[in-house]
Computed example of a mutant assay.
Amino acid sequence: MKAKATGGLRAQRVRRAWLVTLPMLVVLLMVAGWPLGRTIWFSLFDAELAQLDSRRFVGLDNYIGPDGLLWSGDWWHSVGNTVVFALLSVVLETLLGLGVALLLNQPSRIRTLLRAAMLVPWAIPTVVSAKMWSWMLHDQFGIVNHYLLALGVLSTPLAWTADPSLSLFTIVLVDVWKATPYMALLILAALQMVPVDCYEAAKVDGVPAWTVFSRVTLPLIMPGVLVAMVFRMLDALRVFDVIYVMTSNSRATKSMSVFVREQLIDFGMVGYGSAAATMLFFLIALITIMCMGLMRRSSDKVAA
């Protein structure tokens, strides 16, 4: 009898949860589901922007046909650029954000001011910050080359955003400058959730600081760090604005989003561009599922 009552209460809670979330699901379906469905639908056609009404159904040819995405060197080059950008930027932002968060977690009279100042790069719109860095990194008139030449670090000015060997790494550094405060803020929130008793017990036992960090702090904040990394990874995989503003359609830095924009807008190939956008969506969805599984295993280890 008790089990039956418990089951009925659980079913009632499930129904109530669905009723509460139903309006949000409807709005999400209208805002995201309909455009996604239209994009997948157009990816099955040979359609051009100038002659959209005369589109021709080609099935999966835009994906696996002789001229499909799977055989396109430019597409896979953009995939490689995006993956390299995402991995480098997220790793650097996580390490720097962790260091900044540890510093801000220490008691200080100006801690509130430092937290506010730290968010300034993140608060600047990406297009504005990208344009600002483009000016500062200009090979002839940029302030970065000016001071590096004055200090003797460089003998000749460098074309930071025009040189194919430097442009991708330069964009990674610009993204790290902008997104590190975001990572630091999320990690700082995780640090402030660590029980103070753990540190007090370690201090009484004379445990070295590095051991406290590696055996106490890091395992406890790891779920929060993983959440921050997942958010940034998903954002980095669909990067567009900073790359397009600083290097436009340069092949050396072209990301998947820039590739999609080039096919849809510059070339007017709606079907092919929609196929690329669909591939981008499913790639991000796959990585999201993998990251969620990793987070779940990490949370289970911490709970155990």
Rank of each mutant, 00 (worst) to 15 (best):
M1V: 15
K2M: 14
K2Q: 10
K2R: 13
K4C: 15
Q12G: 10
V14A: 08
V14T: 14
A17Q: 15
V20F: 08
V20P: 01
L22V: 12
P23R: 00
L25R: 03
V26K: 15
M30I: 13
G33Y: 05
P35T: 07
L36Y: 08
W41G: 12
S43G: 09
F45S: 04
F45V: 15
A50I: 12
D53C: 10
S54Y: 11
R55H: 06
R56F: 09
V58D: 03
G59S: 04
D61N: 15
N62D: 02
D74C: 04
W76P: 08
V79N: 01
V83R: 03
F85L: 07
L88E: 13
S89Q: 05
L102H: 01
L104K: 00
Q106Y: 06
T112P: 10
R115A: 15
A116F: 03
A116Y: 02
A117P: 14
A117R: 01
M118C: 15
L119V: 13
P121L: 01
P125V: 01
A130I: 03
K131I: 08
W135C: 08
Q140F: 12
Q140I: 11
Y147R: 12
V153N: 06
T156M: 10
L158Q: 11
A159T: 10
A159Y: 05
A162H: 12
S167V: 08
F169Q: 11
F169H: 06
T170S: 11
I171V: 10
W177R: 03
A179K: 00
P181D: 08
L191T: 01
P195K: 00
V196F: 06
V196E: 15
D197F: 02
C198R: 08
E200Q: 15
V207K: 02
P208K: 02
P208F: 13
V212T: 07
S214K: 05
V216F: 09
L218D: 04
P219D: 03
M222R: 02
P223W: 03
G224R: 00
V227C: 10
M233D: 03
L234G: 02
L237P: 13
D241V: 05
Y244H: 06
Y244L: 15
M246S: 13
S248L: 13
S250R: 07
S250D: 13
M256L: 07
F259A: 04
V260E: 02
D266F: 13
D266K: 15
F267S: 07
F267E: 12
M269S: 10
G271R: 14
G273Q: 05
G273A: 08
S274D: 02
L280H: 09
L283K: 06
I287Y: 04
M292L: 11
A304K: 04
